[in-house]
Amino acid sequence: MADVQQSEYYSGDIARQLLAHYDAHARTLPWRTPPGAGFANPYHVWLSEIMLQQTTVAAVGSYFQKFTHIWPSFAALAAAADADVMAAWAGLGYYARARNLLKCARVVVTEHGGRLPETEAELLKLPGVGPYTAAAIAAIVFGQRAVVVDANVERVVSRLFAISTPLPQSKPQIRAATDSITPDRRAGDFAQAMMDLGAGMCSVRAPSCLVCPVAFACEGMRLGNPEVYPAKTPKAAKPQRTGSVYWIQRGNHVWLIRRADKGLLAGMRALPDDQWTARLDGHSTPPAPAAWRRLPVQVSHVFTHFSLLLDIAVTAWPAGAADPGEGEWWPLKSLDKAGLPTVFRKATEAAMNAGERICACKIVVRR
């Protein structure tokens, strides 16, 4: 790691140079207020920060626009039906964020009069708000000096200070180093400038060091190998799980269930499955007695902690028979409005693209 005294010598220059660059080159984002235009909309910043957790800016943009159009305030979101919010979130992943989004909006309305608390300590008490999000809101919305460290900032600071300790063990070092260069004024702009730098010039591979506004202070560049930072502990291989999903069709409708309120993809609409989890393979037992036929296709999906390979079994459901259990018949032509999680959207597309046409009396396979 670079000498601390040298880092302190550069700290003020780093902030000045980076803020000057940000003033001229800040990214235009739907939730961001341009430099010099005042503090950002608290609801917009909070919503975007929750959405951006472990998700790219490119993926979040359309979801942010949709949410702010349907629910333009904390009060509007707090009054929304859980199922509607979960359906609108479908495809963005990490669904616990959507559940915490609702919880947080309701706490803000009921306990804080519809306004976000202004301190990091109070923000940390809100559902779904961790240290990074609390610091980002405090700095960007309320102008407080806060140390904001996301993955982009980790990369920039690791290179500036040549921090060789692997992540995640280096997080305290990175935070201390970020603290040493965070200015007392314009901490929010500084945080966003660091994020922009990491998302652009200071990219994972082939960083643009020659045009970087803080290259003069970068120890990683001086050593000639900025790309080796941040060092990372090798990840353990993800376990592979297997399971099945079940396509039950009656006429022009397919049977959907609501998943349990706790656990993976909690509360989401989905196709029935055989209870696979991150720890266990599915048991291969269909949800109801029927003439099941397995399709000659499989669906793969990667979750945060495991990979999944799914078989797909299909059956036709007689028009006069009792329903297969608890669930709902959903029109095939409106499946895109069901808010299915990505893994079940993949299974739906695979089933329909496999050329299966399921009628009330039998399964007809197109040859």
Rank of each mutant, 00 (worst) to 15 (best):
A177F: 10
L197F: 04
D179G: 00
D179A: 14
I174R: 12
A138F: 01
A199V: 10
L160W: 07
V157G: 03
A135R: 09
A135M: 00
V129R: 04
T133H: 07
D184I: 05
V153C: 08
D150P: 07
R155I: 02
Y132R: 09
P183W: 08
T133Q: 00
A138C: 07
D189Y: 02
D179S: 14
G130L: 07
V147Q: 06
P168L: 12
T165I: 13
S164F: 12
V148E: 02
C202F: 07
G143P: 05
G130W: 02
P168D: 12
A177G: 10
L160D: 07
D184S: 14
S203A: 15
R205F: 12
V157A: 03
Q192S: 02
S180V: 00
A176H: 13
S158A: 15
V149H: 05
S164L: 12
A176E: 15
M201I: 14
V141W: 11
E154L: 14
F142E: 01
V204Y: 12
A136I: 09
R186W: 11
V157W: 06
A177P: 05
Q169G: 12
M195P: 00
I163M: 08
K171M: 15
T178C: 10
D184N: 12
F190I: 03
R175F: 05
A151I: 01
R145W: 06
D196V: 08
I181V: 15
G198T: 06
Q173D: 15
D184E: 14
L160S: 03
G130C: 08
Q173N: 12
I163R: 09
P207F: 05
S158E: 04
S170L: 12
V148P: 09
V204W: 13
M195D: 00
G198P: 10
R155A: 06
I137K: 01
A136Y: 04
Q173W: 10
P166Q: 09
A138I: 07
M194H: 08
R205M: 12
A146I: 08
S164P: 06
F142G: 01
V156F: 03
P207I: 02
A187W: 01
V157F: 03
P168E: 08
A176D: 15
Q192I: 12
A193Y: 01
P207N: 05
I137P: 03
A176T: 15
A136T: 11
I181E: 02
P131W: 09
P166F: 00
R145L: 01
V153N: 07
R186V: 02
P131N: 14
A138D: 04
D184M: 10
A193E: 06
I140H: 11
P168S: 09
L197A: 06
A138R: 05
R205A: 14
V149G: 05
